[in-house]
Amino acid sequence: MTDQVDNNSLDRAAVIEIVVAGVREALVLASPEAETTELTEETRLIGAGAVLDSLGLVTAVLEIEQRLADEHDLVVVLADERAMSQKHSPFRSVGALTDYVLRLAAENTHA
């Protein structure tokens, strides 16, 4: 799902940074004091104990897609059919979403 494959610089640390920035953007939009909320790989994005509500998740996903496109020329749809049908949603945590982005990026590189 891309016309760009220039994502060689996309290592795990870079993706975590983008996912965290996207989630933080969504949190800050809802509540400015979220600027200092600690976000780790284990931070839950959906379900019990999640930091985001439904609109927040939409915002976070869009922010992450946008940053991947802007900073790495990686054009992906994160909420694709596979993601939405997985038993263990890739949106469940920062770490899971990071892994999913890396998987999509690898598939694009090899496409």
């Binding site: 799902m1 891309t2 016309d3 760009q4 496109a69 802007d70 054009v75 749809v77």
Partner: peptide, 13 residues
């Protein structure tokens, strides 16, 4: 065509 539409908007952005 989802891929083509995505690429169009990425280009416009």
């Amino acid at each position: 065509d989802e891929g083509a539409v995505k690429a169009l908007f990425a280009e416009i952005q």
